[in-house]
């Protein structure tokens, strides 16, 4: 087994609802190897998104260890965490979350504005990323002028533009038809195989999960079993 990219120990997370504390993740342990492609499955409300958000550093656990690439991100300040995310995590959302007022090119360029790259260097990177997702000819289009599948491909280009080690995807095909979904899943597989990205994908669709190398099943805040897919 390769060195773990993500190491989770005794992770606890609960939400406050009406003055009551509702446990979502209870003392969860999980290892994800570098270069792995993991599908998180489980019934609705089982805590898949919560776990993914914690791994991506956009939410904070109540307790437990959350080592990502050797850094315990649970201990980072808000500011340090934002910086860490910009460098280490690529995000793919169910509803793409592109900026409607920015063109495909500008959307992909967005994360690079937090780097010291020059405009011409940024342009080069953006064109490469758009080429990878096959949308160079659509770079001047606004999200509203693109299909769902195309928007998600722009989002994938945005997710990899800073060359992060980890890509998180929450139901990336949840809003797409079968053929568009397959395009996205093939792209994710390529990110994993060709670029060596560690991918954590939340899905409730077994077909989508079959593209992953492992499936982790969540139930009521605990991992019930891990299934290798191949």
């Amino acid at each position: 087994m390769k060195s773990p990219a993500i190491e989770i120990r005794q992770l606890v997370k609960s939400y406050q609802r009406g003055g009551e504390s509702v446990p979502v993740l209870r003392h969860l342990d999980l290892d994800i190897a570098a270069g792995d492609f993991v599908a998180l499955m489980g019934p609705s409300g089982s805590g898949k998104s919560t776990l993914l958000n914690l791994i991506a550093g956009i939410d904070k656990p109540d307790s437990g260890k959350l080592l990502v690439s050797g850094v315990d991100i649970a201990q980072l300040s808000e500011h340090a965490l934002a910086h860490w995310r910009a460098q280490n995590v690529g995000f793919i959302f169910q509803f793409y979350n592109l900026m409607p007022v920015l063109t495909a090119f500008e959307n992909v360029e967005l994360p690079l504005l937090l780097t010291p790259l020059s405009a011409s260097e940024r342009r080069e990177h953006v064109l490469t990323a758009l080429q990878m997702v096959g949308l160079q000819d659509r770079m001047r289009h606004y999200p509203g002028e693109l299909s769902g599948g195309q928007q998600q491909r722009v989002a994938i280009a945005r997710a990899i533009i800073t060359d992060p080690r980890i890509v998180v995807a929450d139901e990336p095909t949840g809003d797409l038809d079968r053929s568009a979904a397959d395009d996205i899943l093939h792209l994710l597989t390529r990110l994993n195989k060709e670029l060596g990205k560690t991918i954590v994908m939340v899905t409730h669709d077994p077909h989508a999960a079959s593209f992953a190398s492992h499936i982790q099943q969540l139930e009521k805040g605990l991992l019930v079993h891990a299934i290798p897919t191949h």
Binding site: E78, H79, A82, H83, R85, Q87, F91, N97, M99
Partner: peptide
């Protein structure tokens, strides 16, 4: 709100 959250997720500060 969702756009601001996206900006922040991508690493942009408050």
């Amino acid at each position: 709100v969702a756009e601001y959250a996206t900006f922040k997720a991508l690493g942009f500060g408050p």
